[in-house]
Simulated scan of single mutants.
Amino acid sequence: MSYEITGKLIEKSEVQQKTETFKTREFVLEKTDDIGGRTISNFIKFQSVQDKTALLDRFQVGDTIKVFFNIRGTKWNKDGKDLYFTNLDAWRIEPEGNIAQQQSGYSDMPPAFTPDNEYEEPVDDLPF
C-alpha cells in the first residue's frame, strides 16, 4: 500500500553508502495542521534507498514537496530480544504546485499535458 503527504522539506542528509551494494538517504518533512485554531507541527523522517536517493537532489531545504512512500517494518533479534523498526520509504517526490512546475522536470512521470498546455486525450485503439 502506498501513501502520500505534502509538507516543507526541513532537512536532508547526504547519501550514506551502508554496504558495497546498498545506499540510503534520509530527509525530514514538516507537516503542519490547524486543529481547533492551533497550528500543530509534525516532523516526519523518511528514507530513500538505492537509485531513489537522487530524488532529493533537485529540492532545497524550505521547498514544499509531495512525498509518495511505503511503510516498511523489520523485525530483528539481538541477544534473544526482538527489536522492531519502521521505515517510511520514499519512492517519488514532486514539488507541490501547478502543472507548469511539474512539467519543468521535477516529476519523474510523463506530463499529462502537451507543451502548449492542452490536454491530450488518450487514444483508445483496443479492438474490443
Rank of each mutant, 00 (worst) to 15 (best):
D79K: 11
L88W: 02
S48T: 11
Y119H: 07
S2R: 12
K23I: 03
S41K: 14
I10N: 00
L88G: 02
E20I: 07
D34M: 14
K66A: 08
P127Q: 10
T53D: 04
R92V: 00
T86Q: 14
Y84C: 05
K45E: 14
L56K: 04
K12S: 13
G80Q: 05
E11C: 11
G80P: 05
R38Y: 13
I35R: 05
P110T: 03
Q16G: 12
E30Q: 12
A90C: 06
E96G: 02
S48F: 00
K23F: 02
G7C: 06
F59D: 00
F85L: 07
G36M: 13
T24H: 00
S13E: 05
N98A: 07
L56Y: 03
I93M: 03
N70G: 10
S13F: 08
D116L: 12
K78R: 15
E120G: 09
S104H: 14
Y119I: 08
K45H: 11
T64I: 10
A112V: 06
D79I: 00
L56M: 15
R38M: 13
A54D: 12
R92M: 13
F59A: 04
D82P: 07
M1P: 08
K75P: 03
I71H: 05
I99P: 00
D116W: 10
S2G: 12
A100M: 10
Q47N: 15
K52W: 01
N42A: 14
K8V: 15
P95K: 06
E96H: 01
Y3P: 06
F46N: 00
K45W: 08
K52M: 13
Q103G: 04
T53C: 15
E20W: 08
G37A: 03
N98E: 10
F46K: 01
N77T: 12
T32L: 04
S41V: 12
Q102H: 14
G7K: 00
K81G: 04
P115W: 05
V49I: 12
S107R: 06
D82T: 07
A54Q: 11
M109W: 06
T24R: 09
E94M: 08
Y3M: 13
S48Q: 02
D125F: 06
P122S: 07
P110L: 10
L56G: 02
T24M: 10
P115S: 12
P122H: 01
P110M: 07
A90Q: 00
Q16I: 15
K45Y: 03
I65L: 02
D63A: 14
N70D: 09
V61N: 10
F43T: 11
T21Y: 07
D33E: 14
P115Q: 10
D89N: 14
S41A: 15
F43I: 09
Y84L: 09
E11N: 14
L9R: 00
S104P: 05
D33L: 08
P110Q: 04
S48V: 03
F46H: 00
D79P: 00
A90T: 01
E14Q: 13
N42K: 15
K78D: 09
F59C: 04
E118C: 05
G105M: 09
V28Y: 00
L9M: 05
D57R: 01
D57L: 04
T114Q: 11
P110E: 06
K81D: 13
L55H: 00
I5T: 07
R38N: 15
G97K: 01
E118W: 03
V28I: 15
